[in-house]
Design a protein around this nucleic acid. Structure first.
Length: 264
DNA sequence: TCCTATGTTGTATG
DNA sequence: ACATACAACATAGG
């Protein structure tokens, strides 16, 4: 589920815990979410710790405690939320941090998410080494063009999903970007004209801004002028051409596009 | 029963 | 070493 803006939304769901002390940690330590995590250290260091701040970067989140940093990736089905106590955990609530008032819950039925844990208050190296965000100023058109050229044979759809260069972009955002830029998702990444590259660059930034504004703030409904509201319904029509949309597997993922608008 | 799912990673192949 | 393609991970819902 979660891409850039959804992650930002979920990050804020633990805000009720900011400045509060964690009095209990409930964890399903055997789940693969915690692979490579020292779960005993996690429980020990977070119990009694204070939640100081949280950050989001693409699909990654970082929660800074007085004693340690907790990294969270939501995978496909993960979500974060806070509930007033008393709270009875669901079977898929694999990490629950309790303050005196709230349960901060990480739920993930499919277990494609991931938790990291780093003792100490300093930002861990894996976090500081993350690539520039699409909305950062140092994400520029030259960097985009260079990356597209390096992946020149791969379908654009697959390239846009590469987190090493486009952190936060996921399946629906990639489709939305290519649809707005009027570029076919199967077009090889190295085959864009200069005009197309410029257009792709602008729409990439714009979709990120729009998503953050509409979804990242309070998960509002995207307007019908986006592809978003039409892409999963059978018989969906392109909001720009009025013609039928197509769903097809491209780059290993189900892809929705408007064949009359996005030509090869 | 079968198919799908807003994600990543390991492995095989070129 | 690098780029590309795809199965695997685990569960729920249509």
């Amino acid at each position: 589920m979660p891409e850039l803006a959804e992650v930002e939304y979920y990050r804020k769901q633990w805000d009720p815990g900011l400045g509060k002390k964690i009095v209990a940690v409930k964890i399903h330590a055997e789940k693969r979410l915690f692979r490579e995590v020292d779960t005993r250290a996690l429980v020990k260091l977070l119990t009694g710790a204070t939640l100081k701040a949280s950050l989001a970067h693409g699909k990654q989140m970082l929660f800074q405690f007085s004693t340690a940093c907790l990294g969270v990736h939501l995978g496909m089905t993960g979500k974060l939320f806070a509930e007033k106590l008393p709270y009875a955990p669901d079977k898929h609530d694999h990490l629950v941090l309790e303050t005196n008032r709230h349960a901060l819950v990480f739920r993930d039925p499919r277990l494609f998410g991931r938790v990291r844990f780093d003792p100490g208050k300093e930002l861990p190296a894996w976090w500081t080494a993350l690539p520039p965000q699409v909305l950062d100023d140092d994400f520029n058109q030259d960097a985009l063009a260079a990356f597209l050229n390096r992946r020149k044979k791969a379908p654009l759809k697959a390239v846009l999903l590469m987190q090493e260069r486009f952190p936060g972009i996921g399946n629906w955002m990639a489709d939305e970007i290519l649809w707005r830029a009027a570029i076919h998702p199967a077009q090889p990444a190295g085959s864009l004209s200069a005009r197309q590259t410029t257009c792709l660059y602008k729409e990439m930034k714009q979709v990120c801004r729009d998503a953050m504004e509409v979804i990242g703030t309070d998960w509002g409904d995207p307007p019908d002028s986006w592809l978003f509201n039409h892409r999963w319904q059978n018989g969906g029509l392109c909001p720009k051409t009025g013609k039928p949309l197509i769903r097809e597997e491209i780059g290993g993922r189900t892809t929705c596009y408007s064949p009359t608008r996005q030509r090869r």
